[in-house]
Computed example of a mutant assay.
Amino acid sequence: MGFELPIGNDPVSIRRRIEMVEMMLERSFTIPGINRGVGLDPIIGLIPVVGDIITAAMGAYIVWEARNLGIPKWKLWRMAGNIAFDTAIGAIPVAGDLFDFIYRSNSRNLKIIRKHLDKHHPAGQIIEG
Rank of each mutant, 00 (worst) to 15 (best):
G81V: 02
A60W: 12
A84C: 10
M20W: 05
V50C: 01
I126G: 02
P32V: 03
R16G: 01
R67A: 10
E4K: 15
Y103L: 05
V63W: 11
I14V: 15
L117D: 11
N109S: 10
A80I: 01
I102S: 10
M24Q: 05
S105R: 01
I113R: 06
L98E: 08
G70L: 09
G124F: 10
I92L: 06
A95F: 14
N9S: 08
A84F: 10
S105Y: 05
I44C: 02
L40T: 03
G81N: 08
I47N: 05
E19M: 11
D52M: 08
P42R: 07
P93K: 04
G81R: 06
A66P: 03
I62G: 04
R67Y: 12
M1A: 15
V63F: 06
M20C: 04
R36K: 13
S13F: 01
P48L: 02
D41P: 00
L25P: 00
I71C: 08
P72K: 09
M79V: 07
N82C: 07
H121K: 13
V94K: 02
M24T: 14
F85L: 15
I7K: 14
V94R: 00
E65A: 13
R104A: 10
G37R: 00
I102V: 15
Y61Q: 07
Y103D: 03
V63C: 08
H121W: 14
R67K: 12
L117S: 10
V49M: 07
M20R: 09
L5E: 14
M1V: 11
A95S: 06
P6Q: 11
I44Q: 01
W64C: 00
I43H: 02
P42E: 02
P11K: 09
T55A: 00
G96I: 08
I113L: 11
I112F: 01
W77L: 15
T30G: 01
Y103F: 14
L5R: 13
A60Q: 07
I112P: 02
G39Q: 01
H120P: 03
I92C: 02
P93V: 00
I43M: 09
A56M: 11
P11A: 13
P42W: 03
I14G: 12
E4W: 13
P48H: 01
E22Y: 00
G70T: 05
G8D: 15
W64F: 12
I92E: 05
L69P: 11
I43E: 06
N9Y: 11
D10C: 02
I113P: 05
S28C: 01
G45V: 06
F101L: 15
H121L: 12
N109A: 09
K111H: 13
I18K: 02
P32L: 06
D118G: 06
R15T: 03
